[in-house]
Each structure stands twice: as C-alpha cells, then as structure tokens.
C-alpha cells in the first residue's frame, strides 16, 4: 500500500492541457510538409523521381499526403528548397482531394458534417478495425488512452463491440483476408455511423500500395468521412482530427 502511495506521489498529475495549451513537438519531427511552389523544376523532378511512395506530382507540385510516409527524403534531397517538414500535426481532412496539397489544408472544423457534431459532439464511441497495417497506427491510437492524452475526457471512447459504436476507426490497407470482417463490422454498427480512415495504409495502401493482396483504399469499399494522414499519424494528429471534426 505504501508503495502504491509513494508511486502515486512520484508520478503526480501528467495529463496535458491540450487543446487549451498547444503541445510542441521536437524540431526533428516531420509533420505537415510545406512545399515551395517556386522551386527549380529540376529539383522538383529529382525529388519526385526519388520519392519511395511516388506521391509527389512534379507538374502541380503537390504532395499526396494520403500516400506520403513522411520519410523526409524530399527535404534531404532538395536541402529544404522544395519541401520542408513542419512540426504541425493538424492534417485531418474531410475529403480525399484535399490531401493533394502544397501545405495548406482547409480548416477541418468548418468542413465537418454539422449533423455529426450534433449527434456525436458530446459522446463518440468508436470501434477499431485493424486491417493489415503494421500495428504502428494502432499503437499510437492506443496511446491516446494513456494519462498524458486521456482521450476519455473528450467523451471519445474505443468500445468492445460494433453494437456499442457510433462508427469505425480503420487502420491498415485492408488485406483480402480482412475484407469480409471489415464490411461485417461496419454493417453491425447501427446508423447513423461515421467512418474514419487513419494512416496512409487505410487511405491509399501506404507502403504496400500496388500489392495484389490488399484493397488499398478504404473509401472504395465504405464511404469515408474523415481522413487522418501519417505513417503512422502522431497521437496529436489523431486527437486533433477527432476533436475538430466531431466536437
């Protein structure tokens, strides 16, 4: 018992004050990329050719944030002249098209569906479906339940049955072997329901794009309401998207 009290005192109160106070991430962190649209075409082409995800369109100079894995190669190659990664995590969007970006994303809160805010603003219960990702999205979603983030204080919970849920939170590129389970889970949730695609895999297939063993795009089987890019998205990116879209 004494040990419990001693540890409790040592640990103290650690929950962040976010969103009232911002959380600053270390300068090396790679968040929302900012594109210099005036950059020399040769540099842009070099970056686009080298991009492992082929997510840079050299012509429009846009990056597909839905496929980008934030590896930072384009920043290194262009020495920051074409792309610089900011420490901004606020990357959730309501439309897939918005993810083709030069670094400006529409304010998520204004693009969320108004009836969702009314329905789920005070209480949002989500069912998690892991569908063939690498478990990093899952890990950083789970982190939101730790005391630092304390997701429950926003009235958002991950629940143990689709019957208890208001929507699904999907990670992974949806392998063929998970297709049936993904659709069954979605169907088991009572309407109205929301669909969240979390991480590059669920949005575009991510690192596994082109594989014949995956669906690669959640929206092609179930209509997606909210996209959260990242590989994996930082917990702050997920939290920001959930709060702004639903609260």
């Amino acid at each position: 018992m004494l040990q419990v009290i001693k540890n409790r005192l040592e640990q103290g109160y650690r929950t962040s004050k976010y969103p009232k106070e911002p959380i600053n991430l270390y300068k090396r962190f790679r968040g929302l990329p900012r594109v210099n649209t005036q950059c020399d075409a040769a540099v842009v082409k070099r970056c686009a050719d080298a991009c492992p995800q082929d997510c840079i369109d050299a012509k429009s100079r846009r990056i597909d944030l839905g496929r980008c894995v934030f590896c930072g190669l384009c920043e290194t190659l262009s020495e920051g002249k074409f792309v610089t990664f900011t420490q901004n995590c606020e990357m959730g969007t309501a439309s897939r098209d918005d993810l083709f970006s030069t670094g400006d994303l529409p304010a998520l809160a204004e693009h969320s569906k108004k009836h969702f805010k009314k329905l789920f603003g005070r209480s949002l219960q989500l069912r998690q479906i892991s569908a063939a990702g690498c478990n990093a999205c899952e890990a950083d979603t789970n982190v939101l339940n730790t005391p630092f983030w304390d997701l429950a204080r926003f009235g958002i919970l991950f629940v143990a049955s689709p019957r208890h849920a208001d929507g699904i939170h999907v990670t992974g590129p949806i392998s063929k072997n998970m297709l049936a389970a993904t659709i069954t889970t979605y169907e088991a949730i009572p309407s109205p329901k929301v669909v969240i695609a979390c991480g590059a895999c669920a949005i575009s297939g991510g690192p596994f794009y082109g594989s014949e063993d995956i669906v690669g795009d959640l929206n092609s089987i179930i209509p997606v309401d909210l996209y959260i890019p990242g590989c994996p998205p930082h917990p702050l990116a997920i939290l920001h998207a959930l709060i702004n879209y639903f609260k």
Binding site: A50, C51, P52, Q53, S130, A131, A132, G133, G172, P173, S175, K176, N177, M178, A181, P207, F208, G210, S211, E212, D213, I214
Partner: peptide, 18 residues
C-alpha cells in the same frame, strides 16, 4: 493470416527505393 499484405512479393518486385 488476416494481416497478410504480400510483403515478400512486394520486396521482390518493387523498385529499390521502396
């Protein structure tokens, strides 16, 4: 097997940069 996404096949067929 539910997480099978064809990793080995990809590693053998995609460009080195991936």
């Amino acid at each position: 097997g539910y997480q099978h996404r064809g990793v080995e096949k990809l590693l053998q067929s995609v460009p080195m940069k991936r």
